[in-house]
Nucleic acid binder design. Structure first.
Lengths: 365, 365
DNA sequence: CTGTTAGCGCCTTCAC
DNA sequence: GTGAAGGCGCTAACAG
């Protein structure tokens, strides 16, 4: 079923059908009705490919490339993107690279083959030369989110991870800790490096020496993080506090703690990065650096929309948005549970209230 | 940059370039090399739309429509789909309807406009006549996952939720409970209804009367579930155990419990549906009905692939795969904590071990 | 108001 | 081996 078939059935020319379908150009009300009826009856749907072929990229498709959709951070990010995409009239296609640069490259190729209007991207790593050079040659606007590609200068939406990490580590220091370990993310990502840097800065600012053995790989994965914890806890002089570089690594730590009957705020202290929503409703009381994830996605998509529509502006100054992170203390940062169980619970409830407000705020984009 | 431009640069005809690009038809080694070089230098990427136009649907795109990507169940499902899609040579596009039938319809239209090869779908509800009739007229194979559309007979991958729910409720009964409430899912979805039915059957089998006031709406959402808990706990004769219809509703319950200083297995008992991974590493000990989510996505995609390739078979008998659910008991099903803290912890550790094995198995698809 | 024509970028005959 | 011609489904420009 094509536009020509419809035309024949309606005994008009294809262009008339086209005019009706696209609601441009004048058509007699009567023939219009007739055509629409036939379209309806035959359940004809125009071929978007053919349309965009003649019309230079008319399909409003954009892509979002994330490294791990299983990480709730990226799932929420995708929601933010999709909300904004909706409002701006795009179809957003979600690609999951699963932290695999090969897959990432394939998606970049697909993006180009299928003539997406723009790309939102959380790259796997920042130092992949193949993907980077491919990326830089893409004829469409690209907006980076959270992570970045080295030596490029794309638009982007980020958070200040150095500050976020620094605040977290300082909170641990203020609670009396000096033996603070970091389960770090891959140093091939911007957030991985920034969070290490923040950790460093906080230690330095307080005259605490940086100890190599306190910094272990977590790869933003719970498995690696679990192993990192094993190494840390086997040290002759193990840390008393952990700074965990993201939510996946936090889960790895929790797993270790549970298996070893250790409790946060009693046997060890900890601050994580990024929220793990459900934990707020448990007794885990994990303190964390919280970021406006939904909004990051939303704003990134809006930025992309700007770039797509104002093509003239495409070579203008890059726009880079930094959204603030918020340190949320729930108790796990404290050393050896100074407060009694009772008091702790109450504090937690107040926190929980704050959380709910924050939640709503985050959705209010 | 088009195939014609390349042809001119290489001083050959477009068809020769096409032959090189698609590696069909004979081309002299020398000119082949020359053409490839020019393609490389100019970073030319063929237009997939144009290609598929002449070639009847050559692009291997499939779509996955999920109601809520923020629900880790669907995120993991998407991973399973994408893994299989990869192996079978498809691009899988993920659409998030956010439980909105309007959005769902738009995606169905997009699927058709953009000539997807097939569709994997978790419909928002099963009784939307508009979307259903649209769906039934789609000229491509459709595989349902988890949920279903009423009065249709598509291929599908499901789990036996009646049995799953029944097992869960029986476990509560065996722990001495008779006042068992259900936070239910929408009855406009198959899982919502099946889990209610399983609940019913279990009560009946044990001669426990069904009490209207013990069954409250949870909508598969944590907010509604939280409110449901409020209503339940305000009853003159509140339940002693909760069966929660999915992971989102479980989170709502946990939120309520935390705010009211209630603990699972001490102040109230509970069994949920679907995993919440991170909880396994907390002290929450939430028992749950666990399903092989990743595999559900994986098998659904494989089934779709079959339907796409064996077009002859498309009108054959529908294939419906039912994957088993597994009841995992971690302690929250027990009444008034019969065991001491110590013993409980040990039990938990053994469970944790089993979980890890299950994890690996689930990935082993 | 409507039809005819040409062309979007590519592939596939069919000639040479 | 290679080129020319036609067509995929649709829209836009130009005639009427």
């Amino acid at each position: 079923m094509t536009i020509n078939d419809i035309a024949k059935l309606a005994k008009v020319s294809p262009s008339t059908v086209s005019r009706v379908l696209n609601n441009n150009g004048p058509v007699k009300e009567e023939t219009k009705k007739r055509i629409l009826q036939i379209v309806e009856e035959s359940k004809f749907v125009p071929n978007a490919f053919a349309r965009s072929l003649s019309n230079e990229n008319l399909i409003n498709n954009v892509g979002l490339i994330v490294p791990n959709i299983d990480n709730p951070f990226f799932a929420t990010l995708a929601e933010g993107v999709s909300a904004a995409a909706d409002e701006c009239g795009y179809n957003s296609f979600l690609f999951n690279t699963n932290e695999d640069v090969k897959k990432e490259l394939r998606f970049l190729q697909t993006s180009q083959e299928q003539r997406l209007r723009g790309l939102l991207m959380v790259p796997v790593v920042e130092n992949d030369t193949v993907n980077r050079s491919y990326l830089m040659r893409l004829p469409i606007p690209v907006v980076m989110i959270d992570r970045e590609s080295y030596n490029t200068n794309f638009d982007g939406v980020f958070s200040d991870d150095i500050e976020g990490a620094c605040n977290a580590v300082e909170a641990l220091i203020q609670n009396g800790h000096t033996k603070i370990a970091q389960i770090m993310g891959p140093l091939t990502t911007k957030p991985g490096r920034a969070r290490l840097e923040g950790y460093r800065q906080a230690l330095q600012a307080h005259g605490i020496p940086y100890r190599e053995e306190y910094v272990v790989e977590g790869m933003f994965q719970k498995e690696a993080s679990y192993e990192g914890m094993q190494r840390l806890m086997k040290l002759k002089d193990p840390p008393t506090a952990i700074f965990s570089a993201n939510n996946m690594t936090s889960i790895g730590v929790l797993k270790y703690l549970k298996e070893h009957h250790m409790r946060l705020g009693r046997d060890i202290s900890m601050i994580g990065y990024d929220d793990i929503k459900v934990l707020e409703y448990t007794d885990t009381n994990l303190s964390t650096v919280s970021r406006p994830v939904h909004r990051m996605g939303y704003e990134a998509m809006q930025l992309l929309h700007e770039r797509i529509t104002h093509t003239d502006n495409r070579n203008g100054a890059r726009k880079r948005i930094y959204l603030g992170a918020q340190l949320i203390l729930r108790g796990s940062e404290r050393m050896f549970a100074r407060t009694s169980g009772k008091k702790e619970t109450e504090k937690t409830k107040a926190q929980s209230q704050r959380e709910m407000e924050k939640d709503e705020e985050a959705k209010d984009v």
